[in-house]
């Protein structure tokens, strides 16, 4: 099951202490930047959960 991004916790990438670390750490290309926000492509998510573990804002989770 793909991850869920809490947009409120996430905020804009320009304010992220990891400078969009989730995008950089995801090797599936499931996360990308669109107008300064992190956007998920659900089909590409491989459930590795690296983004959940490494998000400095704790903005990524699973149900």
């Amino acid at each position: 099951m793909p991850v869920i991004i809490d947009t409120e916790k996430c905020g804009k990438i320009e304010n992220c202490p990891g400078e969009g670390l989730c995008i950089k750490i995801c090797e599936q290309g499931a996360l990308f930047e669109e107008n300064g926000d992190v956007v998920l492509i659900r089909e590409k998510c491989d459930d590795c959960d690296l983004c959940i573990q490494n998000c400095p804002n704790n903005a990524v989770s699973k149900e």
């Binding site: 990891g18 400078e19 670390l21 950089k24 750490i25 690296l50 573990q53 490494n54 400095p56």
Partner: peptide, 11 residues
């Protein structure tokens, strides 16, 4: 710290 991002040179 964030050991994996550090090891990968991301931070």
């Amino acid at each position: 710290g964030p050991v994996l991002p550090i090891a990968r040179g991301l931070v």
